[in-house]
Design a protein around this nucleic acid. Structure first.
Length: 739
DNA sequence: GCACCTCGAGTTCA
DNA sequence: CTCGAGGTGC
């Protein structure tokens, strides 16, 4: 305790320093007692004092701190819960990206992983640590000199939200670490979860209070951590379990197990079920045992995580852009449920694709009640041989999306009705047809009727000879022979004016991601289209002038909501060009591509007049998109739509990204080659674009400047050959004023 | 022609 | 979150 605080207390007491010293000591003893209790309870799993004694200690400390506020330290157990809700969540950039873990579902895939590891380590010996995968919310905790300074969600892996205020309320998260050898900086990653006991107890309390209960621990944990007011989170019984590391400085440990032993010593709970194994076969041999054991664990799990123990070997193996190569998750088989297929509903999406959706007798599965499941397409229905009235098996793919995976044929009723592709659109009655294969493409279908979901579509000229689809994320197929087919799997409604398509199209335009028109969601869009008050996107901006009276009389639409709707429409007129473009759904242009175009052209008119050559020049726009854009603006409908919007006062411009007027590379084509020191390729390319330049891939006579890094190769030679100016990284940074 | 990245669509429920 | 397709780089 600092002498200054001591002085303050003695002044406050107007008493002798010895007494003050005594009080300080008492407070710190209390704090330490509580911390030791938390440590024993959460880290060692052995309660040392009863809840009542704990509460007594806590109350004593609290009383003391109320009387002598000078004694309050940020790491005091009384300071876990802030007294104010926060305003909103700040974004936090992770110092090392929080990657997710690659999944496997069977032994073969585990062995393949092991082989990749063995190869990557070139014959070195290695060992794994295995532990159950806690199903919660991934969180990163940052300790500076032993004090908790930040807790953040994983977010997209690069940046997450600052949830320190809520994580502080989790009792197993130490606010201050024990011990002498605590590193200067320690970033621990782990899972905040809601153990079954505490979760059920909390739900029981809610039920008693007549409040709705939570469906499953994981979703409820996510919800808890998203609270603005930490007072709502305390007392829920959330827990933290560490499973990984971010930055640690200085790093003394050489293996995860070593480091985790230290974590435990410092007061951070790690998984008590972690084991070390030498061979993947040991894991495989015990898979079943682990799966059975799952039920008895205190928290929800859906699999195992298998990691290389040695930290230097992890570095050697590295990571792909999405997953570390030294770590894999094994997912237990998904839970299944059996229910009755009550009906198949035909949905028409905005693209005109007709999707069969299974209406199910509601059934509880892995935490939620399922009443719908997509059947994807009619091929899938045929493959599964599923009929209305059948008892079907459903399963959650990736723990989230329910799927019909099979039929219990023994229980089939003879009245079960088969469902085939409809000849007419369920919405407008127009003719349906199979989606044609695009010119230049070919489609193939596996000849095995039972083959899992497989239709191949590729641009290649050579015919694939067997059923196998290999991409970065998938390697599947049955290796049977394939057959060329004359259409794609999707059934589409051919009527462009189909009401369902119009509704979906307008809803897309008005949706949050695009024009964000408040008051015009899916429900009202549907009603207004059905009442014939809306027929096209442009009609939105005619509603007020033309149909005010009619709208006034619509049931369910009071004066207030009508005002809100008109206001929402008015507001949307100010949205930048990119939103309008994305809302119009030209070809497959979404927000990202729309931003690109908006930034390039600045207003709709210039874009509509853009030549093919001009569009092709844009980085990110190729032949396909160019063609679709030009077709749209040449079409009568396209032209009419955007002009009408413009006439109604919808903004059609967007300021171009600021480019430094004196940018030395404005309008120049720059090629980067070799390895740079100060940034990676993507960064410098962004920088070039930001400065108004164009970043190209190969050196040609169109190139204005070549920036070379280490071990630059043929491109630099070519630049010299063509007499293109070539400068090194340092010089480049100097020119743009960044060094 | 392949590998890798990015974009957009589609999927359920609370 | 997953998948397929387009775009780009080599």
């Amino acid at each position: 305790m600092a002498p200054r605080a001591l002085l303050q207390i003695s002044n406050a007491l107007r008493y002798n320093p010895a007494m003050a010293k005594n009080i300080i000591k008492q407070a710190s003893v209390l704090r330490e007692d509580i911390r030791r209790h938390d440590y024993a309870y959460y880290v060692l799993g052995k309660p040392v004092i009863s809840d009542r004694e704990y509460d007594k200690l806590f109350a004593e400390l609290k009383a003391m701190e109320v009387e002598h506020p000078e004694l309050v330290t940020p790491d005091s157990p009384t300071q876990r819960v802030g007294e104010q809700p926060i305003e909103g969540f700040e974004h936090v950039t992770h110092s090392i990206p929080m990657l997710s873990v690659d999944n496997t579902y069977d032994e073969t895939q585990l062995r393949e992983f092991d082989l990749r590891v063995a190869k990557g380590l070139g014959g070195e010996s290695y060992r794994y640590v295995v532990e159950p995968k806690v199903d919660g919310v991934a969180v990163s905790l940052v300790y500076e000199r032993g004090m908790l300074v930040l807790a953040a969600t994983r977010g997209d892996g690069e940046t997450g939200d600052d949830i320190t205020h809520n994580v502080r309320t989790v009792p197993s998260v130490p606010l201050r670490l024990f011990g002498e050898d605590v590193p200067e900086l320690l970033e621990v990653r782990g899972e905040v979860c809601w153990p079954w006991d505490a979760f059920r107890a909390f739900n029981a309390k809610r039920e008693e209070a007549g409040e709705p209960t939570f469906a499953n621990p994981r979703n409820a944990t996510t919800g808890s951590l998203k609270q603005l007011d930490p007072r709502n989170v305390t007392g829920r019984g959330l827990q933290f379990v560490a499973h990984g590391l971010g930055r640690v400085e200085p790093l003394r440990a050489r293996t995860q197990s070593e480091l985790f032993a230290s974590l435990k010593k410092w007061g951070i709970p790690t998984s008590p079920y972690s084991v070390e194994v030498d061979l993947i076969e040991e894991v495989i041999a015990k898979l079943e045992k682990w799966d059975r054991r799952r039920e008895s664990l205190p928290y929800e799990t859906d699999g195992l995580v298998i990691k290389i123990d040695a930290l230097d070997q992890r570095d050697v193996l590295g990571a792909t852009s999405r997953y570390p190569r030294w770590c894999i998750a094994y997912k237990f088989a998904a839970e299944q449920a059996e229910t009755v297929l009550l009906d198949v509903e035909l949905q028409v999406g905005k693209t005109g694709v007709i999707t069969p959706v299974a209406k199910l007798d509601p059934v509880h599965l892995a935490g939620t009640t399922i009443s719908n499941a997509s059947l994807h397409n009619f091929d899938q229905i045929e493959r599964l041989d599923v009929r209305v009235g059948d008892r079907v098996i459903i399963e959650k793919a990736g723990e989230i999306i329910p799927q019909v995976v099979g039929v219990v044929l023994q229980k089939r009723n003879k009245h079960a009705r088969a469902i085939g592709p409809p000849l007419n659109c369920p919405s407008c009655g127009g003719k349906t047809s199979w989606e044609p294969i695009k010119p230049g493409h070919r489609a193939y279908h596996c000849t095995n009727k039972k083959c899992e979901l497989y239709l191949n579509r590729r641009q290649r000229k050579n015919i694939p000879d067997r059923c196998r689809m290999i991409t970065k994320n998938t390697d599947r197929g049955c290796d049977n022979s394939v057959q060329e087919v004359d259409h794609m799997v999707d059934l589409i409604c051919t009527n462009p004016e189909c009401q369902a398509r119009v509704i979906e199209g307008i809803a897309h335009f008005a949706s949050r991601d695009n024009m964000d028109i408040e008051g015009l969601g899916n429900v009202w869009t549907e009603k207004l289209v059905k009442e014939r008050l809306l027929r096209s996107i442009a009609d939105i901006y005619r509603l007020e002038i033309r149909y005010k009276e009619k709208l006034d009389q619509m049931p369910g639409l009071g004066a207030k909501s009508l005002d809100r709707l008109f206001q929402g429409i008015e507001e949307s007129k100010k949205k930048p060009l990119a939103r309008v473009l994305a809302g119009l759904r030209i070809g497959d242009i979404g927000l990202a591509t729309a931003e690109l175009l908006a930034n390039e052209f600045g207003d709709m008119k210039s874009l509509s007049q853009a030549s093919i050559a001009r569009l092709m020049e844009i980085d990110g726009i190729g032949k396909e998109l160019t063609e679709r854009i030009v077709t749209y603006f040449q079409s009568e409908e396209g032209e009419r739509t955007w002009k009408e919007l413009s006439d109604r006062g919808v903004n059609m411009t967007q300021a171009k990204r600021e480019v430094a007027a004196d940018s030395p590379i404005a309008g120049k084509t720059v090629v980067v080659t070799g390895t740079l020191q100060s940034m990676d390729r993507k960064q410098i390319q962004d920088l070039i674009k930001q400065l108004g330049g164009k970043s190209a891939g190969s050196v040609s006579k169109k190139t204005d400047l070549v920036v070379y890094g280490e071990s630059a190769g043929s491109k630099l030679d070519k630049a010299r050959e063509l007499g293109v100016e070539a400068i090194d990284e340092k010089e480049f940074l100097k020119r743009i004023g960044k060094s």
